[in-house]
């Protein structure tokens, strides 16, 4: 369960301040798929960054698994991200100097896991890339890179997966495959999935869609329970 209580974000700009997010409340139940949509500059990415502890809110509390992450220091946040949160980015952000398998292993190595090699291979297998472990990111297609990124995000089996425009940089067919993979992860592992997207098709698949406009929640649309 993720809970945001009165969370706002302002940044200094010139002589005054610029409000990026007005105080908002939001709760995301475990195992749900939540899509955050909205036009450019509406605060989507900021919201995602706040949930991940990549940025600190100006006010309010953010509870992830019962812990108020706004009280944590940088290193504690890093540990939290390493073990509890997986990331998938629009531009994949694989480490270019590492092979696919090494990229998947990194979070486990950071966390000090022992069987990084075996689990890394299993994860690559899970995203259908068991043959490509020794390739460097530059040798992989966009879709493949994003699948490696998903495998990496799952490395420490985190309860929460955050995705920032995961299909934004992919053609529609590849994008579809990536969406299927993410949803499959959500179902099979029970991972909570929060994604920022422009893609209406993708948003339609979410349990809950949050529409942002000018830094405030403009709409909340819950998908009717599957029949």
């Amino acid at each position: 369960m993720i809970e945001l209580r009165g969370v706002s974000k302002t940044v200094p700009s010139g002589d005054g301040t610029l409000t990026i997010l007005h105080p908002l409340d939001l709760s995301i139940p475990d195992r749900h798929v939540v899509a955050i949509t909205g036009p450019s500059g509406s605060g989507k990415s900021t919201l995602l960054g706040l949930i991940a502890g990549l940025d600190a809110p100006t006010s309010g509390q953010i509870l992830v698994g019962g812990t108020d992450i706004t009280t944590l220091g940088e290193d504690a946040l890093a540990r939290l991200r390493g073990t509890h949160i997986g990331f998938v980015f629009q531009f994949f952000h694989l480490l270019p100097s590492l092979t696919a398998l090494e990229n998947v292993r990194v979070p486990m190595e950071i966390a000090g896991a022992r069987d990084a090699e075996r689990r890394g291979r299993a994860l690559l297998d899970e995203v259908g890339l068991s043959e490509r472990g020794h390739h460097y990111p530059s040798q992989l297609s966009g879709g493949e890179q994003q699948r490696v990124a998903i495998a990496r995000a799952l490395a420490n089996d985190p309860p929460l997966l955050l995705a920032d425009e995961p299909t934004g940089n992919l053609d529609s067919t590849t994008g579809r495959q990536v969406i299927d993979l993410l949803l499959q992860v959500n179902r099979s592992r029970g991972t909570t999935l929060v994604l920022v997207t422009h893609d209406a098709d993708l948003a339609a698949l979410a349990d809950l869609t949050i529409g942002l406009r000018d830094g405030a929640i403009a709409s909340r649309t819950a998908r009717p329970p599957a029949s």
Partner: peptide
């Protein structure tokens, strides 16, 4: 970018 990714993946600044 690599540093940012590592930090995102849970590496502390010290590491």
């Amino acid at each position: 970018p690599s540093v940012a990714i590592l930090k995102c993946l849970g590496a502390s600044t010290r590491q």
